[in-house]
Amino acid sequence: MNDVLISARNLGKTFSSASGLLGRKGRDVRAVDGVSFDVHRRETVALVGESGCGKSTLGRLLLRLIEASEGEVHYMGKDLLKLSREQMRAMRKDLQFVFQDPYGSLSPRRTIFEIISEPLEVFSVGKTRSQRRERVAQLLDQVGLSPSFMDRQPRQFSGGQRQRIGIARAIALDPTFIVADEPVSSLDVSVQAQIVNLMQDLQEDKGFSFLFIAHDLSVVRHIADRVAVMYLGRIVEIGPKAMVYDTPHHPYTQALLSAVPEPDPDAKKTQIILEGDVPSPANVPPGCSFHTRCPIVQAVCRRDRPPLLDTGKGQMVACHFAEAHPLTKGEHADLAKTRLQAVGSTGAL
């Protein structure tokens, strides 16, 4: 596939707790563990999972906002993780980030013009100040803000407006790849849709690729081309949106999807309620990391870690029993129910 834009191979990050003066070692936190996936040109890949599953860390690893512990990130034939700081800084022209927190991510003492023109200034786009002002005005217009806001400060804007400013900064250099870390999760529901639509329109317009990190599955369904599901630092299922939503193979994906609220009150739906809490990433269970909560757990799950394997149609699943139980939309609820009963009767948990 030559339309692959950026690809991660075996990417991992371990946060080691600070060792004391005498070399005492705390417990290491495995935030991201051996993640491999590709993002194609003009594609939106959504990364979903519970909070703490490492999705934000993964997004930052790709752009080296956090240094990875191991693995590779290929972009334009280069391994980003092997570039020097200065080389990586030059690459940032193409690789941008939209932050989750629209309040914290804009420097409180700077004007909107200064914030949006900072990337322009860094990469000498626009020779003179007036050229940059023109460009910033154009960018503000593109994100649906009045250019007359240019000399105001971030505190004068609402959350949605600030996120628009953050987006304007991200697209200022015409990047090829943008990581958006839960860009709408801190916004009002009414504003969320506006921002999501704005990002979609901009993507269509400019043709960048998107890694959209989210935990809201309805937002993901709206924006994504492909969906990757993360659990405890690993991708457990990845595939085209329709496949992941209609025929989820991994029991965790199934449970996640069953928790999405249904707008139709009469629709019959069984929720798969997972037992227990997510284990701490400082103490990831051996074998399949999901085995402590999986409704169909078997002995092999506790022993061997299932690899992420292709089911044949571009959908990849990391589950020992993925082949055994592909679910169609209709079967979803029933199967889940019978499986839960089966688990109860055999006492497999």
Partner: peptide
């Protein structure tokens, strides 16, 4: 730790500029 410092790094701002423009005033 503020997100605006990370966002300055993300758009490629050089370290001295980050220190004088985003750290010192704050």
């Amino acid at each position: 730790q503020e997100p605006y410092v990370e966002s300055a790094i993300a758009v490629g701002v050089r370290t001295p500029t980050i220190i004088f423009r985003h750290i010192v005033p704050n």
